[in-house]
């Protein structure tokens, strides 16, 4: 299982490459993707620098929102320019834009974003016809329902999250509740964390539920043994938190590589403190600096 790591800067790229990232991805300001604008690189030169730093390792550009028609031309120009510099692939969600790139005979490796609604073999076949090379499984698709996607007949590679440490309470692209990821003010006040709020309802208190840590550890064990090809460490506003996630997931993958039994793996995984990685605590914008290089 290889590590795909999202980065916001050359500093972060350097750090994660030195610490075992197998490939990187980034986003560009002005080219839509599913992160806060300030998590994107300000210009193409930033992406070029990351490609240069990565050397022979792969770099992807995230354009994982529905792309408006007026951006097709500029997006294609940027992708062509970056491909000349060594960009390996692009992360997409929009079937119309996928079809456009295919019609243009534009041959970058295509990863289908976790935001695309691809929960079954029929959906994979639909996107497969549009030429995808890899699928990032939706965060809410668990190995118990993902067998045909992990071992698909189209040769499409798969990428997963370590859900014990990184999980969306609702289907990511189909949640329109206030969220720190989309809060323009970045206030991080209570209303920005709807999915974490304690609600009152008839019969007592309610919190939007998520599966327990033991289930999640078992899920990651099953993804690994189900032959998921990559694990994703997503871009995050707070670099130290992202580095923390990266090292914790790396530890878990090492356990699996050493042949840990399910029982041992779950036992060890449950000792990991996931608190620092929870939504509310990790959405302070703190980009990479000297501190993160020491992390």
């Amino acid at each position: 299982m290889k590590f795909t790591v999202g980065v916001k800067s050359a500093d972060e790229a350097r750090y994660f490459l030195e610490n075992g990232a197998d490939e990187l991805y980034c986003g560009l300001a002005g080219l839509l993707n599913n992160r806060l604008p300030r998590e994107n690189l300000p210009g193409v030169s930033g992406a070029e620098e990351i490609i240069r730093l990565a050397g022979k390792k792969r770099v992807f550009l995230a354009v994982n929102e529905i792309v408006p028609a007026k951006l097709y031309g500029p997006a294609l120009d940027i992708l062509k320019g970056l491909r000349r510099r060594g960009l390996f692939g692009v992360i997409l969600r929009d079937p119309a834009f996928l079809a456009f790139l295919r019609a243009e005979k534009f041959s970058l490796y295509v990863t289908l974003s976790t935001l695309a609604l691809c929960f079954n073999r029929g959906a994979l076949e639909f996107f497969g016809r549009l030429g995808i090379n890899r699928l990032v499984l939706p965060m809410q698709l668990m190995p118990e329902n993902a067998g045909s996607l992990l071992k698909n007949k189209f040769g499409i590679e798969t990428e997963v999250f370590c859900q014990r440490l990184y999980y969306g309470v609702n289907v990511d692209s189909m949640c329109f509740l206030p969220c720190p990821q989309t809060a323009e003010s970045g206030s991080r006040k209570f209303p920005d964390f709807t999915c974490l709020l304690p609600f009152k309802c008839r019969g007592g208190e309610f919190r939007m539920p998520m599966p327990g840590p033991e289930y999640m550890m078992n899920a990651f064990y099953d993804f690994y043994h189900g032959c998921a090809d990559y694990v994703k460490i997503a871009r995050w506003p707070n670099t130290l938190r992202q580095a923390d996630l990266f090292h914790k997931v790396r530890y878990l993958v090492k356990l699996l590589e050493k042949g840990a039994s399910r029982k041992l793996f779950v036992h060890e995984g449950l000792k990991i403190d996931s608190k620092p990685l929870e939504y509310g605590k990790s959405f302070t914008f703190r980009p990479a600096g000297p501190a993160s290089r020491r992390a």
Binding site: Q140, F176, L177
Partner: peptide, 15 residues
């Protein structure tokens, strides 16, 4: 519509 989950909030499973 505001948000959807595939994890049943009532029975707590993905089945």
């Amino acid at each position: 519509f505001k948000a959807v989950t595939t994890y049943c909030p009532f029975e707590k499973h993905f089945k």
